[in-house]
Design a protein around this nucleic acid. Structure first.
Lengths: 366, 366
DNA sequence: AGGAACGTTGACAGCGCTACCAGCACAGAC
DNA sequence: GTCTGTGCTGGTAGCGCTGTCAACGTTCCT
């Protein structure tokens, strides 16, 4: 019942060259640097290739040229909505280039990342995109020694390996809390899941903002190592409420958790934002559609992936970017779930009127 | 500022062979078929490879052996939650094999699919995973002529190219409608976005079920080619409501739309399920957490991807599956949003009591 | 006019690995 | 003792392409 392997009837570069009446090497050049050919030969090779339906053998090319046209991408999760947006940006940018994407999943493990990095580097990728700035010493050493351009994505920080694109999760969290302060909230809880380095930094931002205001209390923070989900948001919020019934706002480390909190409030008949305000993180599409609409911190995920891949490809092709570290910033998108609290602390009128208000900020990290 | 290309200090198979005191070809065999070596040489090569940190050059291997260890995967969307689950399954299955995944996005275009297929096939992949059964004639011809195992995923139908794994979207939709009938609903609307072939077949299932009951009306169907989103769910539902205010249930072609409908009902103060019942499709995680909890048709996405990749790898390695066509079925997960309607058609008591009830069915296609 | 400089082309020699086939040693059969 | 079969090993010859360098013709400069 087998699908038999047919004899390779493939046309090679030599065939194309013969039909075009040039040497193989000239034909080869046509595919790598057409400008180097005279117009006459260029058109001859082009039409010969088209006529024969020539497709280059990438393995042979890689072997002869000692480099591949593969961009390695290391991300911590395939499930997470956030990464699917980033990935889409990366794939879109790669689509019109000659580079192909090799994706691997570290599952939020730095050791797995180290292993995959070793694997990738051994194949001499044209470039590398890695997530975050928390590599192991060993990984960092490999990255520093790598002979290809590298982009770190998702956040920015000191000591880039090479290029870097992202924003400050710390400042984004601070901005979210500042927004809640401005709306009159004081007892603000924090809900976080997975607690990967970036969520941790959002927590750090929350803590510092609360401390600055003299309002920090450890019992306002509920976190878990469990992967995030909507259901988990409800569960964590339930915990939080049990610890601190007087809470007047919740900052959720991501939007799934925020949606879970929204549903849990509905279940408990807690009015949003009159009794409790909610702010999420990432501004996924559903946030604008929920009832009430949910405030969130917008991050430019597609743009991040797209720009990362574009910068990387440019760097591979010898056009290094002016600014190797790019801060994409964030925006606090103010919606109904965090409408102003009345000064007398009684329920405010449901603020359904105005559309989304935005507060845009660069990450402004040091 | 450049990151300079260092001289390739890589260790080759020949070095390993020399250290082990065997010929290169014997060392080569060690990596492909260790059983063919005597135990003595096997251990010698193994330790030599470890000592030198040898990593095979895949390009050279591919060139010499005339085949790659790449599995091509063609999916229509990277954004869609549904595919991220399938992909995770595929990546997980590939992780412990020697095959790597090459992913490409057809963006729901069969022409793009055709182009990508041509590209993939030219590189002689070890295997191929393609989405759906609606390839162009040209694509179909290429697949039939391909000399590698192929799995079609997401749905099942007649004339598999090779292997096939999925379920019947048609039957799944019919089961959803049957469930609504059983709960006493009659005027059931359909809301669909994107309208790719699988959504189309869900619509077909809906139409046939409604016609069987003598209840079909064209104005109960609202669809759009626009990509799906929660917000769109609300908008389409609004349309539907304007056309047919007397509607008592909505079947949504996916869960995002269902969530949008839920929010829109809340906005309009329409009671669920008393005034309108909602059924979604796919059973994403948030469906169980929403208020009210949302009925949906569970599909086994992770398992689909995982099994597809496993079957494919087995087939590549010469172990063809007993059943090349696998129906993974579906389950109608009954939740609050479609609780029984009272016979007298007045609002029923909110059915918050019981947990999820399930109705499991094989796709039962012909 | 002579030479340098440039743009364009081609010959050669591998890149690191494996397919194929030959050869060797040893066991068992006759 | 010879023959055949089996298990293991090695030699040879590429896979299809590109890096390097040399060579050619033409133009421009002095």
């Amino acid at each position: 019942m087998g699908r038999n392997r047919t004899k390779s009837g493939k046309i090679r570069l030599a065939e194309v060259a013969e039909l075009a009446g040039v040497s193989p090497i000239t034909a080869s050049r046509f595919f790598r640097n057409p400008e180097a050919l005279s117009v006459a030969k260029r058109t001859r090779v082009e039409s010969a290739a088209r006529e024969l339906g020539y497709v280059p053998n990438l393995a042979a090319r890689a072997l002869a040229s000692q480099r591949t046209e593969v961009i390695g991408v290391l991300i911590p999760s395939l499930t997470n909505n956030v990464f699917s947006d980033v990935l889409r940006g990366i794939y879109d940018a790669s689509e019109n280039s000659r580079y192909s994407i090799q994706l691997s999943n570290t599952r939020y493990s730095v050791l797995q990342e180290e292993k995959l990095l070793r694997l990738f580097l051994a194949q001499k990728p044209a470039g590398l995109i890695v997530t975050g700035i928390d590599q192991t010493t060993e990984s960092r050493a490999m990255l520093d020694a790598a002979d290809c351009p590298i982009v770190q994505i998702m956040e920015i920080g000191p000591n880039p390996v090479d290029m870097m694109i992202g924003f400050s999760h710390y400042e984004a969290a601070r901005a979210a809390i500042a927004h809640l302060f401005a709306q009159g909230h004081r007892k603000i809880g924090f809900v976080g899941a997975r607690m990967d380095p970036r969520v941790q930094r959002r927590l750090d931002g929350y803590v510092s903002a609360m401390k600055d205001a003299g309002l920090f209390e450890q019992r306002l923070v509920v976190t878990t190592a469990t992967p995030t989900s909507v259901t988990l948001g409800g569960a964590l919020f339930t915990d939080l409420l049990a610890r601190e019934p007087g809470m007047d706002a919740v900052f959720c480390a991501n939007d799934d958790l925020a949606l879970g909190v929204l549903f849990e409030c509905r279940r408990r008949e807690i009015a949003i934002p009159e009794q409790i305000a909610i702010v999420g993180f990432n501004d996924l599409e559903f946030m604008a559609s929920a009832v009430p609409t949910l405030t969130s911190v917008r991050t430019n995920r597609y743009e991040m992936g797209n720009t990362a891949a574009t910068m990387l490809i440019d760097a591979i092709d010898g056009r290094r970017p002016e600014h190797p570290v790019l801060d994409l910033g964030f925006k606090v998108i103010e919606r109904q779930s965090s409408s102003p609290r009345r000064a007398d602390n009684r329920p405010a009128v449901s603020g359904a009127g105005a559309a989304n208000k935005m507060v845009a900020l660069p990450s402004g990290h040091d």
